[in-house]
């Protein structure tokens, strides 16, 4: 039997856990790419707390749902407009029968000379990056994060220099599901439309005359630059689906969040702490005249009584019977 036993149930543990992650803002900046599209995302989240905690026997617990709050989400898009070649056609086909070309590696009617054509754009006709500020749709983003943590107790010094037996929770695994975005009530389509308009206006700067725009569009096969860019970005009717695909697949935001949260939780402060040495009687200031028998009588009217303490030994923490137990002995 240990000298001292403390235990905490799941709900209190959860409350303490949630106080240990005080909503520090975590920034990330990640990029990815799709065909012809460069994607970047800037974001800021904070951990709001655990939605559900389940103790496992031993020293691990499951964090069923880690709630995070989004503070910022900005998507950056850059487009590598394809350098379309036009006017390429077969100028001269292989004559069907030429006696002295018997060993020619051509079949009759095969193209022998191709008209070279031209490219629509010179250099790299890249657009952007331009930003889509997605803060307005943050309430519609669902992020499901879970994880398994282990707890341990360790003697450590805090910032004031005092030593404690500190109980920490460290992640062994964090699972971040791909984020989902429900119907954004028209907000996301409006944001995307604004962004595409900007991109189209950037592109149109490269094309000085209206007839040139229409000739370019005839080659691209789209009625408008907006339609072309939407197609280039692979944005179709369901923009929420598109954004989910961009964030989850192209950016791999689940992995970004995983890294961010894992790191943050590795660096998190302790959940519980027990003073070591353990004070039975705290240090205090007392009047000299109320006591006697000093080794050396204090000079002033008061003196500082040092804390009466005992070292903590055999400190252990574990989960059992839906409680977290901290046990320790006094080294006296």
């Amino acid at each position: 039997m240990s000298d001292v036993t403390f235990s905490v149930n799941e709900s209190t543990f959860k409350a303490v856990f949630n106080k240990a992650y005080p909503g520090k803002k975590l920034n990330f900046n990640e990029s990815g790419s799709k065909v012809l599209v460069w994607l970047g995302v800037e974001g800021e989240i904070h951990i709001e707390g655990a939605g559900g905690i389940e103790f496992e026997d031993g020293n691990t617990f499951l964090l069923k749902e880690l709630e995070i709050g989004w503070d910022k989400l900005i998507l950056r898009l850059g487009l590598d407009v394809p350098n379309v070649e036009i006017g390429k056609f077969c100028l001269l086909r292989m004559p069907r029968s030429i006696p002295f070309w018997g060993d020619a590696p051509f079949l009759g009617d095969e193209c022998l000379v191709e008209f070279p054509g031209v490219t629509l754009f010179t250099g790299k006709p890249d657009i952007g990056p331009f930003k889509l500020n997605l803060n307005a749709i943050i309430p519609y983003i669902v992020t499901e994060i879970g994880g398994r943590y282990f707890i341990y107790i360790n003697k450590e010094k805090d910032s004031s220099g005092k030593f404690y037996q500190m109980v920490h929770a460290k992640p062994t695994a964090v699972d971040v599901d791909p984020i989902s975005i429900s119907d954004t009530m028209g907000k996301l389509p409006a944001i995307i439309q604004g962004g595409i308009y900007y991109a189209a206006s950037q592109m149109i700067k490269y094309i000085p005359q209206t007839w040139m725009v229409d000739v370019v569009l005839s080659f691209l096969g789209f009625p408008t630059l907006t339609a072309f860019l939407l197609d280039l970005l692979d944005i179709h009717d369901d923009v929420e689906d598109w954004l989910m695909d961009v964030l989850n697949v192209s950016i791999g935001i689940d992995n970004v969040l995983y890294q961010l949260i894992f790191q943050e939780m590795l660096e998190s402060k302790e959940l519980f702490k027990i003073e070591d040495p353990y004070p039975f009687i705290d240090a205090k200031t007392l009047d000299v005249s109320d006591f006697g028998g000093y080794k050396t009588t204090p000079a002033g009217s008061t003196f500082e009584l040092p804390a009466i303490t005992a070292p903590v030994t055999d400190a252990a923490v574990e989960f059992a019977e839906d409680n977290m137990f901290i046990r320790f002995n006094f080294g006296i």
Partner: peptide, 16 residues
Amino acid sequence: MSDVYGAISDDAIQRI
């Protein structure tokens, strides 16, 4: 059940 539990043994108290 309770949120928090604490126990101390008489042996520990005696040593204290």
